[in-house]
Structures are given as C-alpha cells and as structure tokens.
C-alpha cells in the first residue's frame, strides 16, 4: 500500500480544527454577510423606516397630547407602542426559516458534513439573527430618540434605557422561540406561518381570553412578560387591579419587572434548549 507523501503528511499534521467558539464566530459572520446581501434585511429595514417615518410625520403634523404631554409619555407612546411589533417582525424575518431553511433549501448539506458540531451551526445562526435584529432595533431606537430630543431636548428619562434593555431581552426570547419552531418543521413556509400566527394573533388572543374569561394571570405567555417594555415607561408602574364586583369584576394584570424578566428568560432558555436538541436529533434525509 502506498503511504501519504511527506508534503501532505505535514499539512494534515499542521491542521487543527478550530474551537467550537471560533466556528460559531465563522457561522455568525457568514450568516450576517448572507443577510446583508439578501433582500430580507433591507425589506425589514424599510418597514422599520416606514413605521418611524409615519410616526414622525403624524406626531409632527397632529401634535397629539398623548405624545407631547411629557417626555416619558412621548417615549411610552412611541417606543412601547411599536417596538414589540418591530421585534416580532425581526423574529419572523430572521428566525422563522433559519433552521428549517437548512433542510428545505439543502444549505445544511453544505455545512453539516464539515468537522463542526451542529450546536455551533445553531448558535452561530442565532447570533447572526440577533445581530441583524439589533441593527434594526438600533435604527428604530435612534429615530425614536432623535424625535424625542427634538421635542423634549436631551432630557431622556432613565426609564427609556430600561425599556431598551427589556426590548433586547424580548428580542432574545422571541428569537429563541422562533428558532425552536424553525427546528420543529422541515418546511420554511410552515415554520414562518406558525411563528407569525402565534406572535401576531394567537398569544394576544389567548391573553385576552385568559384574563377576561378564566380570570388568571397569564404568566405563561411571552407577550405578557413583554409588557414590562411598555409598563416601565408608565409612572407610576402599573399594578394588577380589579375593577367591578362579583361576576362583573375584571382584573387587569400587570407583570412586575422581576416577573417579566423571569418569563422572558424562561422562554428563551427553554426554547433554546429544546430547539438545539431538535436540531441535533433531526436528520438530513
């Protein structure tokens, strides 16, 4: 039998597979390159700019009291009223088909046969989606603050920074959730559709039903936890209140900040672990 030549031997001996952390970085880098080159990043950016542009024009033209009565009210109406929608859109755009696309479009076949763990692919893609969404969030925040500074000067309430932090936490949880659903399905349309229906309709509907009919605190819903993004911009911070008596009583629930953080973190951790396990088990048949 012939033996490898010295030159090839030296190449094989020299080469060491990079650490998983380094491979995660590589996947993230090329995921971002792919996003920036593809239409979806710019479509989402344009949607964000349209929302910001509409708000800028409407507030500038109509000067609504709810926006302009105080700096805190301004940020509460502007930021809290629209950022969850922007985050959900980011989740759908970047997470909806992130994993299922690897199966349906067969791009996973190009990656998986290399010496890297599947978890590195999952985490790398998740970080890529997070970074692309953070750019989106940053642009939206910059326009919001720009308008706020125009109307109220540099007196930016500290609650806005808290709300920004909670928005990032919500984004992390939403992306964890959408990646989980993306791992669950092999078809991209199904995973995108289910994610969109859940976040745009189902969660809100369930929350309304649970609060109104079952009359229990919807602590198990991610959208309930996300209310801290808006609640923190209300002074004083809203609390759970019951109006009316007997059968007509209606309780308006408000998650406290620790509760909201706990709900969002739990959603992220549980769905990230489940999504990762699903991707590890899933077969490229």
């Amino acid at each position: 039998m012939t033996q490898p030549t010295p030159s090839t031997l030296s190449i094989w001996k020299k080469r060491v597979v990079p650490s998983s952390v380094s491979q995660v970085g590589t996947i993230t880098k090329y995921e971002l390159v792919n996003y920036f080159r593809s239409r979806r990043f710019f479509v989402l950016l344009i949607i964000g700019l349209i929302i910001s542009g509409l708000l800028t024009a409407l507030v500038g033209y109509y000067r609504p009291e709810s926006f302009l009565s105080s700096a805190l009210n301004f940020y509460s109406s502007w930021w809290a009223g629209s950022i969850t929608f922007v985050i959900i859109l980011s989740g759908i755009f970047y997470g909806g088909d992130a994993i299922s696309g690897e199966f349906q479009n067969k791009t996973g076949y190009f990656l998986v046969a290399n010496p890297l763990r599947r978890s590195s692919i999952y985490v790398g893609k998740w970080l890529g989606a997070l970074m692309a969404s953070m750019i989106m969030l940053g642009v939206f925040a910059a326009i919001t603050i720009g308008n706020g500074v125009y109307y109220f000067g540099l007196n930016i309430p500290y609650q806005l920074w808290e709300s920004l932090l909670f928005s990032v936490l919500y984004l992390i949880a939403v992306l964890g959730f959408t990646f989980f659903f993306s791992s669950l399905f092999k078809g991209t349309s199904m995973s995108i559709l289910v994610t969109a229906i859940l976040f745009l309709f189902a969660f809100n509907l369930i929350q309304t039903l649970v609060e109104g009919l079952v009359k229990i605190e919807p602590w198990f819903l991610i959208t309930y936890g996300a209310q801290i993004i808006g609640n923190v911009l209300v002074d004083p911070y809203p609390t759970t209140r019951t109006q009316g008596f007997g059968r007509d009583a209606f309780t308006s629930y408000a998650a406290t900040i620790p509760e909201g953080i706990a709900i969002l973190l739990t959603y992220f951790l549980v769905t990230a672990v489940l999504g990762l396990l699903l991707f590890e088990k899933k077969e490229f048949t």
Binding site: V17, Q23, I27, R37, T107, P115
Partner: peptide
C-alpha cells in the same frame, strides 16, 4: 477533520460568492 464530503447536491447560500462560501469552509476547517 480528515474528510472532505459531497453528499447529494448541497445548496450554497445564494447571496454568497464561491470565494466567500469556500472561505467559510476554510475557516471552519482551520
């Protein structure tokens, strides 16, 4: 680490160029 494989007909991210796609493989393989 010592294997190069081509299974079925993989797709490459359409927005990447061959140089970028192969750079990704090169980086992943060290």
């Amino acid at each position: 680490n010592s294997v190069g494989a081509l299974i079925e007909s993989p797709e490459i991210y359409p927005a990447l160029t061959p140089r970028e796609a192969l750079s990704m493989v090169s980086d992943l393989r060290g």
